[in-house]
Design a protein around this nucleic acid. Sequence first.
DNA 1: TCTCACACCTTTGAAGTGG
DNA 2: CCACTTCAAAGGTGTGAGA
Length: 701
Amino acid sequence: MNIPMRDPVIPGTSMAYHPFLPHRAPDFAMSAVLGHQPPFFPALALPPNGAAALSLPGALAKPIMDQLVGAAETGIPFSSLGHQAAAHLRPLKTLEPEEEVEDDPKVHLEAKELWEQFHKRGTEMVITKSGRRMFPPFKVRCTGLDKKAKYILLMDIVAADDCRYKFHNSRWMVAGKADPEMPKRMYIHPDSPATGEQWMSKVVTFHKLKLTNNISDKHGFVSAFSPFFSPSSLRCPCRRGSPGPTILNSMHKYQPRFHIVRANDILKLPYSTFRTYVFPETEFIAVTAYQNDKITQLKIDNNPFAKGFRDTGNGRREKRLGTRCSGSQPLCVADLCPSEGDSDADSKDDPLLEASESGKISTTTAPTPAPARGSPPKSHFFPSDSAASRSRERTEKAPPDSRHSPATISSSTRGGLSGEELKSPLRDGPKGDEPRLLGKEPFAPLTVQTDSTAHLSQGHLQNLGFPPGLAGQQFFNPLGNGHPLLLHPGQFAMGGAFSGMAAGMGPLLATVSGASAGVSGLDNTVMATAAAQGLSGASALPFHLQQHVLASQGLAMSPFGSLFPYPYTYMAAAAAASSAASSSVHRHPFLNAVRPRLRYSPYPLPVPLPDGSSLLTTALPGLASASGEAKAAGLASSPGAGPLDSASDLTSRSSTLSSGSVSLSPKLGADKEAATSELQNIQRLVSGLDPKQDRSRSGSP
DNA sequence: TCTCACACCTTTGAAGTGG
DNA sequence: CCACTTCAAAGGTGTGAGA
């Protein structure tokens, strides 16, 4: 085996990459996923909570990984491989579990009304070969976080269903089966990790995330690894090594997801608890060219970059209107948007602010008390340091009072959700010193918060296709909900905060990811509705092959680590279940045969637990009805069915789920016997050997 | 349905100026 | 040294022709 040595791991980067995350029981992890007897990991005698790392020079990664994966698949003990792989498998770092902190995260979608306007019109999101930003930008406000604890915020976009669409007769219609999905990347917010206080102090935006239909796009792996990558690019948040675009299929429907992970180190991500939040109104259909004039006009009216196309502008808008959109009527949102003049000084880096900051698009309710630190009137998600920007900010007129709906969009899995209204900080206040990590971006003056009293509960798991037999498994964390986050090396993308860590790992990650993109599940202790759906994107590939990377920044995440956040059993079970539930997985030849496709419904009905708590983090206020209307109006025949489609299913199967195992922070000292038992269940589940499970799955919609 | 060049626009950071 | 202005470059938009 001739393996060139290059791209050595940079000492001190703590680059932990281990395809078979040995969290507590690495052998179990791998075998569980693969459905084999535990392979032998001679080099992995790890402490219970230790993290083993496969520290490999980049060029070594691919061949060694291939062998390791192959061995795992065939049940060959790794010890018999007799090459560098075993030598490289070694404990790299012991990761202490996140200390228990009391938090009750709630997430509010910003500019919700604008999103709803788009949604009602059959939102189209343009994707280009070079990558195109999302508009409206995905922005959220977090509350309920532990001020002292550190969190990593992520976002990803997963297929919403298994269909391809076409725009016919002014409406979107199903045009067939979906094309295979490319592995999806997790976009890690560049400010991660940051304290809860920092996150809560401002709007968290992911507007830098780009969408592309270019499957050969490699930028995601380049920025941090490229020799041209300069630390100076990190100075300005806006210029940080931009993550690679998320690859989407044109004419397919997607659902953005937001994840909160309590972790103070990116290395702990795989072991940490995920809370996933889904906002159905952010669902969109990717297009390479706008099909719906209403959407086009809506975006033109709201996106400062498109000012040249506005009716009042001097661009080609008038011409265009005369030819294509002559019949277009002013859109509601347009009315909600600030005039051109108003927007000029606003949104610098955040086009949406142009609209949202005016407050015209906000359907707010009661104002909420502003935190002491207050919020600046203008919000730049990635503010410019330039004098010009500062100058402009100074000259900006004070925004209208932000009135936030106290409603919560999400609920905590901890059952701690008392249903009390969220008190979100006002964003319009004196511009205080923003935490460095979060940049200087001020709050958006106006946010649209919705009541998210609805909580996803275990009942949603049914929707995710959890086999009844598994539901009762202790390890089968209902919150994990069956929908593991698809943490794939290639799934991760971030703005650069972790860029350094990735040094030297680029080739490794790229090769591994490229060669074996697959499904990696990350158990979300608190999984959102869409959990199941998350698989759709990344799960198109074999579960065991998913060696995901923190794509753009080169952060390598153990796919199994992702699967087994902590304890691993939770992850594995969730991953397996999610795989079964994933519509995308369904498309996968390997999994297709044994697991009927489960349709993902992003609008599950919250099912409160007996104790009054809710298991799933994501709660979408009024989503069901709203989305249903939107679908009815915009989608002629969405196979995804409405939000309520899964209600019956959820209800029918909810009894099989156990809520007792829900824990955001599973204790490290889990009983080994229990783990073994869990493992066996996982193995059966993953390997598809359990006929009962299959039967039960087949009964799923 | 997609790609591309294009015009128009915003954003960004550096350079310059003045207090 | 700071605040501010100016400028050019980079980059984000939708358009419309052509493939």
